[in-house]
């Protein structure tokens, strides 16, 4: 069945295919345009470099009036990412606007990787380490990057 949300998601997909931002890929699952798989590559020249992090995006029929639920499937170590993979990012919560499409969401998450907001920690250990012990923090990030290659 075709609904406004589905029609909009088709256009999101088209844009992502025609004009993909660097280091990002995403596509709806074969039989369900409301559920997407995505991969974010860790930005070059950062501790995240080389990581391939998998996410899912679950859309509801109220998209784009409401944001999708975005979760990392890959294990993460980041001040703004919860243990269950959900992400603390303003545009996915109270700062959402239909102006963001899937490409913009994934780009924002990608830049969140290197530019965490330690003031709203979802993982306090990572947040503390990020501000107090950058060296150890970077080591933990490298671990996560390596894990991202072997995970299913």
């Amino acid at each position: 069945m075709s609904t406004p949300a589905r029609k909009r998601l088709m256009r999101d997909f088209k844009r992502l295919q025609q004009d993909p931002p660097a280091g990002i890929s995403g596509a709806p699952q074969d039989n369900n345009i409301m559920l997407w798989n995505a991969v974010i590559f860790g930005p070059d020249d950062t501790p995240w470099d080389g990581g391939t992090f998998k996410l899912t995006l679950q859309f509801m029929e109220d998209y784009p009036n409401k944001p999708p639920t975005v979760r990392f499937v890959s294990r993460m170590f980041h001040p703004n990412i919860y243990a269950d993979g959900s992400i603390c990012l303003d545009i996915l919560q109270n700062q959402w606007s239909p102006i963001y499409d899937v490409a913009a969401i994934l780009t924002s998450i990608q830049s969140l990787l290197c530019d965490p907001n330690p003031n709203s920690p979802a993982n306090s250990e990572a947040a503390r380490m990020f501000s107090e012990n950058k060296r150890e923090y970077n080591r933990r990030v490298r671990e996560i990057v390596e894990q991202s290659w072997t995970a299913d």
Binding site: Y82, A83, S86, Q93, S120, A122, N123, S124, E125
Partner: peptide, 15 residues
């Protein structure tokens, strides 16, 4: 101990 305490904090996250 710390991680346990942080787990609790995690349960009352920003979200």
């Amino acid at each position: 101990g710390a991680s346990c305490e942080f787990e609790d904090w995690g349960n009352f996250g920003d979200e």
